[in-house]
Amino acid sequence: MRITGHHMMATHAKNVAAAQEDVARLADQISSGRAVRRASDDPVAWAQARRDELRATLSRGRGDGLALANDQLAETERALTTIGNAVAEGRALAIQAANDSYGPIQRAMLATHVNGLFELALSAANTQDASGAYLLAGSLSATAPFDATGAYVGDASVRDVETSEGARGAASLAGTSLTAASGIDVLPALRALATALAANDRPNISLAIAALTDGNEQVSAARAEIGAMASVVREADLGRGALEDRLAARISDMVDVDVVAAATELAQGSHVLEAAQLVGAKLTALLSPRR
């Protein structure tokens, strides 16, 4: 085939441009750390990476929800601990007061103490979270769940949260766990003890011991339930973290550049470009018209 000098120079120019394009592409990949930056770079890898990124973002959102739920469960646990301690102390005082050696004046003093325990337990049962919602009210979270007599005015609703993709777990306790629906009305039982002590009513003081024993076990059971929920939430958060790590690794495999391989290719491309530029100088000298 006939090759003209003009054709040789034009072909050389195209080859230099192609070499420059290769070097620019590799430099861009290395400096950005990404081999696949756009869908058009590698449609399949890009789409899979994006789906994984979507899952990772959803997982992080789930983590925020789990963190909030964990805070609420911790707050609920503290409230139940306060209530449990008050019930246990009330029971101990009832046992003391049931003794024949106690007279009306001592029992009246104990009544004041037990009233204080009742107010403490009532306040704990009406604990609110950071947004002002009552934790033990079920779904009626805008209203204090226990009234001044210790009666429950909330509902039995329990809130679920997402624990993992497609899975949910309970993350709240309704105040019904402290009512006859779960055994006895715990707060009214404490109040009944205070009333019996104030009235020097020994039979009812004895009855209060049994009620508060049941109440103590009921509060312990509620604490165990909260503990189990908190454990599920913590496990879910650990699993979420592991999922996000796996997704990050997968995304990196699909779209991040292999720096070593790219750097090697860049070195090769740079040599090709330098050689092409040298060839250009040779061609220019070769094709200059001779005298």
């Binding site: 959102g61 789930r62 925020d64 929800g65 789990l66 909030l68 739920a69 609420q72 979270d129 950071a130 947004s131 002002g132 919602a133 979270s141 805008a142 809130r159 679920d160 949260v161 997402e162 993350a171």
Partner: peptide, 10 residues
């Protein structure tokens, strides 16, 4: 909405 699910009245 995950956060709302955890604290719906906030």
């Amino acid at each position: 909405l995950e956060r709302v699910a955890a604290m719906p009245s906030d």
